[in-house]
Design a protein around this nucleic acid. Structure first.
Lengths: 163, 163
DNA sequence: CTAGATTGCTAAGGAGGTTAACTATCGGTG
DNA sequence: CACCGATAGTTAACCTCCTTAGCAATCTAG
């Protein structure tokens, strides 16, 4: 006799006493905002969210479709499609790997780099400006908090593959 | 003569000097972890990510399809499908709105509430434990940082609809 | 009471993912 | 050196979920 129907709501918010911390609430808000931002940027660029993520990865050096598949958490079959689309848009090119005959290196083109930066710079700018308004020790605290939160989420994901 | 080919990478990381802050890097990591977590939880529950989000919204009270559509950032047509699926799974029921003849109230069933909690509790537990290891003032700092970051992202999204 | 806005739905179509199956190459082992 | 398991990449068929377009019912303001 202490579980349901505490208030007048059908059942509502009884066994969910967590998330009262302002930090946890803000974490939810930022995660939500980022998801919407991803869709918005992708739509603006006329690309899919996966393509944006792939272009970001390629901006740090060439990758093969299989490696992109792992970064995007999709199958290699889907990664082939992503690379196809990036190439069709002229944002990337396929090149045979110099040493390994199985592999294909996907390189970002100048067009791809420009497109990517044009769409990401404004956000990075805003975020960097906001970041700069904190002291170094505050940033360290935030980083510690977020790294721990990411670790907690990854731990939960890892329950699927206990191997 | 100072732009490309700084190192040996084709071009790589020149005009992207931001993201050096540990807080910003951690923010990227946590956003990435959350996206993967969402897919994992949805797959475990045999539901789509949209359904999980919708169930979460319904856990705070009944909503109509149109309201869910706004929360999920999808069209009302898609929301109809989400509600159809939740009802088919027995996690929700449609009820006519008492006063407004156009509306339908979607209510979470006990089955839906149990399913939702069973999948979300472990994560909430880990996150709450992590959160509890910080002082109140640290949590306030984190919240301030994240709220600002979310605002920056929303500001960028809002450029689409300047009206 | 009418006009416009809002809610919810259906139908048709598309984008992007999955599974399954196949080829080619690499790298280690007997 | 010949084989063999592992890895990279692709294709084909399929499926899920979202979109656009259009409609009917109801509410609300003038």
């Amino acid at each position: 006799m202490s579980q349901h129907t505490v208030g007048q709501q059908p059942v509502g918010g009884d066994p969910r006493a967590q998330m009262r911390s302002p930090a946890l609430q803000a974490l939810r808000a930022v995660v939500r905002a980022d998801a919407e931002l991803s869709r918005t940027i992708a739509r603006r660029a006329g690309l899919s969210p996966s393509e944006i993520t792939a272009l970001e990865a390629l901006s740090r050096g060439p990758r093969g479709p299989a490696e992109l598949a792992r970064l995007l958490n999709v199958t290699t079959a889907a990664a082939t499609g992503v690379v196809d689309r990036m190439c069709a848009h002229g944002h990337a090119v396929r090149r045979p790997h110099p040493r390994d005959g199985r592999r294909t290196e996907v390189h970002l083109t100048d067009s791809g780099r420009i497109e990517l930066l044009a769409h990401l710079m404004p956000v990075f700018g805003r975020l960097a400006a906001h970041d700069a308004s904190f002291t170094e020790s505050e940033r360290a605290t935030v980083a510690r908090y977020l790294d721990g939160a990411a670790e907690a989420m990854q731990a939960e994901v890892a329950r699927d593959r206990p191997t």
